[in-house]
Design a protein around this nucleic acid. Structure first.
Lengths: 339, 339
DNA sequence: TTCCGTTACCCAAACGTTTGGGCCAAACGT
DNA sequence: ACGTTTGGCCCAAACGTTTGGGTAACGGAA
């Protein structure tokens, strides 16, 4: 592959143009105007900065990276970017990275162990300075080994082992969902719990079921399924085909809830009247559905941003701690609230 | 920021361990087992490969990139990754890139000219070998200047100017939509056309309106709006508030169609009976909505993949041509079809 | 035995940038 | 006038990898 762009300007070119040494040009451009130990006289520094600006000089990351050992790259693993929640989390990560002069490389692991391993290896080959995992499995073996190797990483959205993570308070979120449905009189409820390997589904389910138990009520039925709409639909079909069908369904994410709404319709049930259905994450879609979806709202972009900030502090040698952001409930027509 | 990972193995380390020169190790690892001009004897080559494998040697992109002038990185600009269609296109790009030993860096431009300019500059500073723009504006001034500078790029999903692009055949897609609605007797139709700066909305609208004109029918009303669900809802509100409201609405993307369905419901219209509503792109959501959405299906991942392949050929010095992938119609309940 | 071709390596330098250290000249203080 | 300090630069080498070129040793043929 040939050189794909206009020749970029080098320090040497600027140095030759100004009759200076490359090290002087480098020091000027990397120092600050008020540096105590000056690289050059004010006059010379001005000439350097002016010419560099004029020529659009941008350092070659290969050269500086080789010398400094810094790539200024962060690797981000997600199950798949076409999962809306992860895409939004990634936007938060990307934004925060940009503010710190870092760039991110993403990789989709599809929640597959081997893919995760291969893509992590690819990212490390890229000499990323740290990693953010949005696809952690509760079986944290892979992450344990990575940590033992000295690799710096932070988890986002899901937790695993005792690795630092930025998540929502998913137990509280599940509890909020339970409070909402119980307040509407739904004693017979069920949970579409997502995948058992993800802390998101497990924690949200635990919070939900926990409140029912505290109230001395029969434990809601819990069904695991893929996180997508098809998975939610299939689980709801199972629940609704039962003679003892629930009067309410809590799906641990919005897409599954959307699938469940489709199944309810197929059973000639009016969502919001005959049956209550709610989701989690309050994606932008939830409010805009033909029948707006009740959902537990989570500041996903903020979660992404916090994860990047936490990682940067870890890389700076600081001690860091996991963070859990508070969810809130947004009631809408799918559980009978007027929107 | 301190070194974030276990010390990586270098060529020098392997060379010293085996009593060889680094250039020999490099030639062995970069050559193929059946190379005519061999870098080393079969015995030596085996020892090198074995030790490199054992130590998990991965070349430092800084070193090799500096020497070869190749970053093996591709930059991808999208309006925003939380737009499901773009995320799926990106998955196709990413997959194809991985197969060619390339990695991608994405950037969100939010369809903002200044952001696009800044993020393109960031990507070029990263020495990406080429760019894929998924956010092209029909005013191709920015892209024209970039091409004039010798920057190699390909457009994806949207076209602009005469720059090489991989898109769906959006005029045909709009035409398919019109055929579908006319076959159902919808003479009074309207279009929620998305943003006027994007070829996607413009071409789909042109195809749709064109068929009505060919049939000697009154041209459908065309409303521009943001591509998201809120934009679709607002546009549909406008259409449905009119005394002469249409019996059918073609929204140029699924999310806008979802928003329009919400507006129809608010007007006590039963979608699929009182009014037909359809979308475009046939995202995985379309089929799974409580009321499945009729949509023009487009192979989005394949579009992404083709774009990467086209770019790699451009970078290899080949002559390339734009590609347009064929859409198909998927009828569902939102236009009255039984699913 | 000598000569030639082939094999199997090594040498050297390039790439762009950063950073430790050094040198020279001018200014300042005694 | 001489010694010290400070300002303003330059020198050199490091980082990891790749690639053009060279050479010593070996084997085979004349």
């Amino acid at each position: 592959m040939a050189d794909s762009k206009a020749r970029q300007v080098t320090l040497r070119f600027i140095a030759d143009e100004l009759g200076l040494h490359v090290s002087t040009v480098s020091r000027v451009l990397n120092g600050r105007a008020d540096d105590g130990a000056r690289a050059a006289s004010g006059d010379t520094a001005t000439r350097v900065r002016r010419l560099a600006e004029e020529l659009g000089y941008q350092p070659d990351p290969h050269g500086s990276g080789l010398r400094t050992g810094r790539s200024k790259l962060i690797g981000v693993l997600v199950p798949r970017l076409s999962d809306l929640v992860l895409a939004m989390i990634y936007e938060g990560i990307d934004e925060a990275a940009g503010e710190l002069g870092l760039a991110t490389i993403t990789a989709n692991s599809r929640d597959d162990e081997e893919t995760r391993r291969l893509r992590t290896r690819m990212l490390l080959a890229r000499r990323v300075e740290g990693l953010i995992f949005g696809d952690a499995s509760l079986d944290s073996g892979f992450l344990d080994r990575l940590a033992a190797d000295g690799t710096k990483f932070v988890l986002v959205n899901r937790r695993a082992g005792d690795h630092p993570a930025v998540t929502a308070d998913d137990r509280l979120g599940g509890r909020l969902a339970a409070e909402h449905l119980l307040a509407l009189g739904h004693v017979d409820a069920a949970v579409i719990a997502g995948e058992p390997y993800a802390s998101t589904g497990v924690d949200r389910t635990a919070g939900f079921v926990g409140l029912y138990r505290e109230r001395g009520l029969p434990a809601p039925r819990v069904l695991h399924s893929p996180f997508d709409t098809a998975g939610g639909r299939a689980a709801a079909e199972t629940l609704l085909a039962d003679a003892d069908r629930p009067t309410a369904i809590f799906a641990v994410n919005d897409f599954a809830a959307i699938g469940a709404m489709g199944a309810a319709r197929d059973h000639d049930l009016t969502v919001g009247r005959d049956i209550a259905i709610m989701g989690y994450n309050d994606t932008p879609l939830a409010a805009e559905l033909p029948l707006p979806l009740t959902s537990v709202a989570v500041p996903v972009r903020e979660i992404g941003r916090r994860a990047l900030v936490l990682l940067s502090r870890l890389l700076a040698g600081d001690e860091i701690e996991s963070e859990r952001l508070a969810p809130t409930l947004t009631a809408r027509a799918s559980t009978g609230a007027d929107t």
